[in-house]
């Protein structure tokens, strides 16, 4: 644990760059900075089905996909290109789908997801999806706010926990979820089969968007003079439209 603490204390979170490099001297509120710091630590920690080294390798592929100035089309696997390092520890199929989720998520079909799950396992796929979505949030936040994305931390040694709750097949998702299925929205239950990813994702959502318990309040705002719900939904709708996300 001392080693973990030591390593983590040296990690600069994405939002710490906002404070140091500055967006005109802007201070990023503490909850957002903390959520992003924890997300970066989480990427480099042993997961439930992937080691930390594997998680960082997959996260690096997702970042490559997001930053790629000349992106591959969705039907071309990134492992068939020369864009990844030659020596890799993660299976090609996982890198290919990580790149696709990073750059062309709307094109991921049930058949594509099923084929990947058949090769790497359903819950490893769920964890991969969560790595991709959390990397996308941090990388895009840095770009949006105009600050540099920090490198991923060094991976922490350790084995995946391989722990999971009782599972159920869902009607509202392709992936298995924690039982009982379909009692909450599809996006809320999507990562419940891998609880560590569920916690990380919704901690980020609370800070980036709004706390879950406040979603019922149409007049919610983070502070006086801050974004209104309607202003937030304008931003959300436009991003979702440009990402062609029907859900």
């Amino acid at each position: 644990m001392d080693i973990l603490t030591q390593n983590f204390s040296e990690i600069r979170s994405p939002t710490s760059f906002c404070e140091d490099v500055g967006v005109g001297g802007t201070t990023v509120r503490d909850d957002l900075a903390e959520a992003h710091r924890l997300a970066w630590e989480h990427i480099a920690s042993p997961g439930t089905w992937w080691t930390a080294a594997e998680r960082v390798e997959l996260a690096t592929t997702v970042r490559l996909a997001i930053d790629d100035d000349d992106p591959l089309p969705p039907w071309v696997g990134v492992t068939t290109s020369d864009r990844l390092p030659g020596e890799r520890i993660v299976a090609d199929v996982a890198h290919d789908v990580a790149y696709r989720i990073g750059r062309h998520a709307a094109t991921v079909s049930r058949d594509v997801a099923r084929a990947v799950m058949d090769e790497i396992g359903e819950l490893a796929y769920v964890e991969l999806c969560a790595i991709a979505s959390s990397v996308a949030a941090v990388v895009h936040f840095c770009r949006n706010a105009g600050v540099e994305v920090p490198p991923f931390p060094e991976p922490i040694a350790g084995e995946p926990s391989r722990e999971h709750p009782a599972l159920a097949d869902a009607e509202l998702n392709w992936v298995p979820v924690a039982a009982p299925a379909d009692e909450v929205a599809a996006v809320v239950q999507a990562y419940t089969a891998v609880p560590a990813e569920q916690v990380n994702t919704w901690r980020m959502a609370d800070a980036q968007y709004m706390p879950e318990e406040d979603m019922i309040h149409a007049d919610w705002s983070r502070r006086e003079g801050g974004l209104s719900r309607a202003q937030m939904e304008l931003v959300a709708a436009r991003v979702a439209q440009l990402r062609e996300c029907f859900f």
């Binding site: 989720i101 991921v108 949006n144 999507a190 996300c245 859900f247």
Partner: peptide, 22 residues
Amino acid sequence: VDAAAVAANFEMMTRLADSTGA
């Protein structure tokens, strides 16, 4: 910065939804 965070959140959620078939 808050608007940047909301946009980033929906970069996350669109990938969550589309990769898990929500």
